[in-house]
Design a binder for these strands. Structure first.
Lengths: 129, 129
DNA sequence: TATGGCGCTTCCAGTTACTGGAAGGTCAAG
DNA sequence: CTTGACCTTCCAGTAACTGGAAGCGCCATA
């Protein structure tokens, strides 16, 4: 199948698929006219990648996971480690965002938001609490 | 003061401060030897920027906020709008991360993580749930 | 057969917010 | 006078695409 079809099937933009080929995540053969010809195997890898990316794995994580998937004798311990580290990063990020959220919520609530002078948000940013 | 001192005072790396000058967030004058000379005003702006960045505001948001701060007659409504929009983005991001977290936690928990073949994480990514 | 239009190709540039490193000038201390 | 810390500029790289231009390929219709 051509790139348009596999794009639709994997829910990835064609641009992204070309990019994944460029960085070596997939290696579809070419037809005589130069078009990429995607086999079922490629479509499968792309769906795998789309799912892993949607879970926030980095491209390098995806590369490792895909290779572990293609290796038979999949070393489940490696997969688990990658996922666990990723989970830890996600949790840290959530924590950081929640702390921003708390501060911002407070600031937005105390800002009257009209044209009277003085703004608690700017005062906070300026270090004038 | 020189860049080293203002870097220490604002808790921003010197590299970042040069970058902020390059993109026009601050405009410190130069000494005869070409060194940047930071006035109190510049140090203040840098602390403002450091705080706003630590709250996750984008550089362009920071630019707007700084300009609203320097404008007397600070239009508090604009500030509030920027902060509110930012808060909304943060909340969306938290939601997305939490959904990843839930899925990953489940996957990590069900993965035995030894060398037995078969791995629920890879199976999920491959779409074989 | 011409042509229109979509799909495919490559290549280049831009995005965000820095960060690292090289090559070299300045300054104060010993 | 040298050493070392501090400053300068410039170039390149990061992550993961995304947009756009220029130019073929292919199919259908007039």
């Amino acid at each position: 199948m051509n790139i348009g079809e596999v794009a639709e099937r994997s829910h990835l933009p064609a641009k992204t698929i070309r990019y994944y080929e460029e960085i070596g995540l997939i290696k579809p053969p070419r037809d005589e006219n130069g078009y990429r010809r995607f086999r079922e195997e490629d479509a499968h890898s792309l769906r795998f990648l789309a799912r892993a990316r949607s879970l926030g794995f980095s491209i390098e994580d995806c590369r490792a996971l895909l290779s572990l998937y293609h290796d038979r004798g999949r070393a489940s311990a490696d997969v688990r480690r990658i996922a666990q580290e990723h989970l830890t990063r996600i949790e840290a990020k959530i924590g950081a965002l929640q702390s921003m959220q708390t501060t911002l919520r407070h600031l937005v609530e105390t800002c009257h938001g009209d044209n009277r002078p003085g703004c608690p948000i700017l005062d906070d940013l300026a270090g004038l609490e």
